[in-house]
Design a binder for these strands. Sequence first.
DNA 1: CTAATTAGTTAGATTCTCCTAACTTTAAAT
DNA 2: ATTTAAAGTTAGGAGAATCTAACTAATTAG
Lengths: 217, 217
Amino acid sequence: MLSFTEENYLKAILKFTMESGKPNAGTNELASHLDVKPATVTDMLKKLRDKKLVDYEKYGKVSLTKSGKKHATEVLRKHRLWETFLYEKLEFTWDEVHEVAEQLEHIQSSKLIEKLDKFLGHPTFDPHGDPIPNSKGEFSVEHKKVLADVAVGKSCKMVAVKDSTTPFLHYVMKVGLGLSSKIKVLALQEYDNSLTIEVNGTQHTVSQKFAENIYVV
Amino acid sequence: MLSFTEENYLKAILKFTMESGKPNAGTNELASHLDVKPATVTDMLKKLRDKKLVDYEKYGKVSLTKSGKKHATEVLRKHRLWETFLYEKLEFTWDEVHEVAEQLEHIQSSKLIEKLDKFLGHPTFDPHGDPIPNSKGEFSVEHKKVLADVAVGKSCKMVAVKDSTTPFLHYVMKVGLGLSSKIKVLALQEYDNSLTIEVNGTQHTVSQKFAENIYVV
DNA sequence: CTAATTAGTTAGATTCTCCTAACTTTAAAT
DNA sequence: ATTTAAAGTTAGGAGAATCTAACTAATTAG
């Protein structure tokens, strides 16, 4: 049985490698992700290596073993199912779900998570649009298209966000956007690639950076 | 912010005093309740006293302060709401809910618990029939009548259990009883006060001990 | 290719929860 | 009332997760 902390380290390694595209992570990168000091990470990596959850050697990069990946994926699955529960059943807002799910993801009960999955109707994406791995650890296909890729004049529907930090989510909501919002791209400013879009009949101008963090179909 | 462990000690003191009727608890009693050694309890009591959560002095009994009682009641409220959720929404059985609720009761989020309460329709009793304190910490009136008190020939409805250990709950289920089961008392054996009852058309004979652990109306 | 910078490690300390073993106080029994 | 048993405490220690400060290895820039 893994401790909360061990689970968090495994999850951090999984998230880092998935988000960065790199096959492995460094001590400092993990330290800042987990908000601890590098020395602490080194200690934990040794422990996880002894438990055969990560491949790691002194001064080298870390990656998950098969067993470590299985554990990490399971934690991610729990996290995203709980986020879905909070959003869909308990009327939490978008930006509130993460913090509570960080706690709920560590509850140990395989029955609980399978029942919750069933209760929610086996969702494949969480409220941020991130894919929820199934009970075998398989991910649904990732969203690829981003608001910045939509041609002028075309319409699209928002399905997810790439950045899920609180400030960004607040900004998204302020612009009137949410999951399933319909967006029409009215104009593209050549100078800085900012976009003028229409949401619910209101016009907004958003930066390229913003538009690259909104997934659409 | 209290740790999981501190919360468990406060809850144990509350449960002990409620169940025993006594106004305070001893070190050994708590130790066996919490499954730790008495020395460990002594350490923790000093810590809780420093935090003004319990009234305690060397070689004396422990009781909760106002603040300690508030915390303990809150934990109990969370525990029982989660049990209700697991039983009513996720199809857990009676004897499975406790273990998982032991973990869920420590999740920190006042919003979560108020939303959960609303989602469940503000229940006043959990699946074991124990009262759920409301958000102000007030308990619903306790059930008083027990199967052993029902007169021969009379019928009643089961609303709760006094003993909620797994073996007892299994036995209860085996007899075909559950919450809201209708029970008719057919006969009383003078010799050992055992009762012959009818449940769903089937007759069973149960001991006095059993009958004293079933709450009815 | 050296020098400087960045990344990573080690050693030693701290806090938390828990333990054992030995001791002390309180309560019970004769 | 003295002895014995039960209840409770203290001291010292262990493992987990964290820190700081000092060190070492790897990488990058000139």
